[in-house]
Amino acid sequence: MEYSARYITEDIKLSSYEDKFFKSDIMFDQHMLVWFLSGETKIVQADATYFFREGDIFLIPRNQLATIINYPKEGQPHKTVVMHLSVERLRDFYAGKNIKPQSPKCQKIYHFSNHPLLESCLASLIPYFDMKDIPGDIASIKITEAISILRTLDQEIDQVLANFEEPGKISLVDYMEKHFMFNLPMEQFGYLTGRSLTTFKRDFKKAFSTTPQRWLIQKRLELAHYQLAEKKKKPLDVCYEVGFENLSHFSFAFKKRFGYAPSHLYDKNIGY
C-alpha cells in the first residue's frame, strides 16, 4: 500500500492511498469530516453499510467502530480531504453556548452529499497543501467555519459535537454481540464498554465462559457462513466484513470449523 498525506496542521490533511485496496478496523477518537476527491470507500458498521465516492462529504463521529475499505476507481487513487474536529477545539467552540446534549440514540455516519457550502469550505483548503508558509490561524478559522456550516445543515448535530462524555460502563454481552466483527485490540473493547482491560477480560470470562479471542473467531465464522450461504456474498467480501485480516487466514479457519472452504460454499450457491 502506498500512502501519502500532506498537512496544513495535524487536524487537516490531504490523504491518498495509491494501492488497489486498503482495509482497516478503526475506532475514531476524534470526529472526522471527510470530503471525497476520488476513489471509493465502503464503511461497515454494526447496523449499516455506507458507500462513498467522488463528491461525497460525510462526518464520522468519535468513539464509533467501523470497518473502512478503500478502493481506487478508474485509475484514480483514493484521495480525501480530512478535517479532525477534536474535543478540545469543540469545547472552545461551544464554550458559553447553553447546549446540554443528550447521548445519541444510535451510532451513525452523517452524509452531506455534494453540499455547496461544505464543499466550498473544504475546497478552499486545497491551495494550502502546496504552501510552505501557511497563516497560523487558517486551520482554526476553517474548522470553525466547517462546524458552523454543519450546525446550519443539521440542527441535531449539536447532540454529537457538543457531547464530551467518555463511554460509561454498559452491558458487555449486548455490546460484544453487536460489534464482534470489528478487529480491535481488547483494550479498546474495554474502553468502549467502560472497563479496564483486566475488568473486561474478567467480565467476559464470566459472561461467555471462554476467552475473547476464541469467542470472536467463533462468532465471525458463524456470521461468515450465514453471509455465504444465505446472502450469497463472495468470500473476499465476507472475509473483511466479518473481521478477518486476510483471505488465507479466513479460509483456513473456516475450513477447520466447517470442513470445507468458503469458496466451495460460494461455488455451490452459484451453481458451479
Rank of each mutant, 00 (worst) to 15 (best):
Q188N: 14
Y226K: 14
L221P: 00
Q227H: 12
A207C: 09
K132V: 03
P185E: 14
L192H: 05
Y175E: 05
R195T: 08
A207T: 01
A207K: 05
D154C: 01
E230S: 08
F189S: 00
G194L: 12
K132G: 05
R202W: 13
F129T: 03
V160M: 05
K132M: 04
Q159R: 03
E230N: 14
P135F: 11
S171E: 11
Q188H: 13
A224G: 07
F204C: 03
L197Y: 07
L223E: 10
I217Q: 12
D133Y: 09
G136T: 12
D130F: 06
K233T: 03
R214E: 15
L184H: 10
E156V: 01
L228Q: 00
A207E: 05
T211M: 10
E166H: 10
M186V: 13
I138H: 09
T152Y: 12
A224C: 00
L216R: 15
I126H: 02
A162Y: 02
P135E: 09
T152D: 05
P212I: 06
K205C: 07
P167K: 08
K206Q: 15
A139G: 15
I138V: 15
K232G: 02
R214C: 11
F208C: 03
A224E: 00
M131D: 04
Q188E: 14
T211A: 11
K232E: 06
Q227W: 10
Y191W: 14
M176K: 05
E230A: 05
K231E: 06
R202Q: 15
I143S: 08
Q213I: 11
E166D: 14
D174N: 15
I149P: 07
N163E: 08
A229W: 03
M186F: 15
Y226C: 03
Y191H: 15
F180C: 04
M176D: 06
T198C: 08
Q227V: 00
F164Q: 08
L221N: 00
I147E: 05
T198D: 14
D174P: 01
I149W: 04
P127E: 03
T210S: 15
L161G: 08
A224Y: 03
R195L: 07
M181V: 02
V160Y: 14
R202S: 15
K231I: 10
I149D: 02
L153W: 04
A162E: 02
S196H: 11
P127I: 05
